[in-house]
Design a protein around this nucleic acid. Structure first.
Lengths: 141, 141
DNA sequence: CTGAATCCACCTCGATACTG
DNA sequence: CAGTATCGAGGTGGATTCAG
């Protein structure tokens, strides 16, 4: 089961111990959150659940390109971190499982929205900077 | 030179072509930005440059645990994306290089601040959710 | 001082096949 | 329908060494 070794990646960096008292660790908390929503599919899944509750298959169709494995893994992680609630409805065949945002999960959509707004406003500048940088690279050889 | 293969990771996902007209790709832009600031050291470096201009060695000391390779790589990427400006002062020995945020780089500190605020407010709940989840896991075996 | 180059362990993600 | 198991490619980050 490789999902465990993959999901335990949220641990400390290595064995170098940092003093937990300086300004570095304040920012480090920010990094913890970025690991939450920074993984490839997290924001996409959260975005869908922000609209409404979804069943597993609905989510899979609503997030084009995601595999079952990655959807399962992403949902497990979000559930593990308290952002998503998983509900099994009855034990019928076929089974029915619904996913929705928790109260905590809803709160994170605000900073995510800030990122989305920034993207719309400034991503063109970023792309332009990339072109310039690469052009300058080629000019130098 | 492995820095190139590492830094070119910002490209498109894979070869499955998505219709660029649906809601999926709006969120996809958000992912692009998360790749920018979501890498391990980006927010830490940006945080330092937010305070003031730093020389390379100053940054290295100001971000405990970072290696020269990762600092160079992070700065190159931020410069490549137009968030950081690199200035070589003269050609003396030893060389002197200064890094600072561009105007574009300054703008991104706002959504980053939103994340930081969320972290301070809600990270305890996330950690609690993790403990509960893992406790429930052990209870089931 | 400011890097570049190399080697390597680990993690992430995708593809595929299988199960209740 | 909603997963789990396994394999493999590729990217990320760390340690160390070398160079202008």
């Amino acid at each position: 089961m490789d999902t465990i070794s993959e999901s335990t990646a949220a641990g400390p960096v290595t064995d170098h111990d940092d003093d937990p008292g300086d300004a570095y660790c304040e920012t480090c908390q920010c990094r913890d959150v970025l690991d939450l929503v920074g993984s490839k599919w997290s924001v996409l899944v959260i975005g869908r659940l922000q609209e409404r509750t979804h069943r597993f298959g609905e989510l899979k169709r609503a997030v084009p390109g995601i595999t079952q494995k990655m959807l399962t893994q992403t949902l497990r992680r979000l559930e593990h971190d308290g952002l998503v609630r998983r509900e099994v409805l009855g034990h019928m065949r076929p089974p029915r499982v619904e996913y929705s945002l928790t109260d905590l999960g809803v709160t994170i959509t605000e900073p995510l929205e800030a990122i989305r707004v920034w993207s719309e406003q400034y991503l063109p500048q970023v792309r332009a900077a990339r072109r310039d940088f690469e052009a300058a690279e080629r000019a130098l050889g």
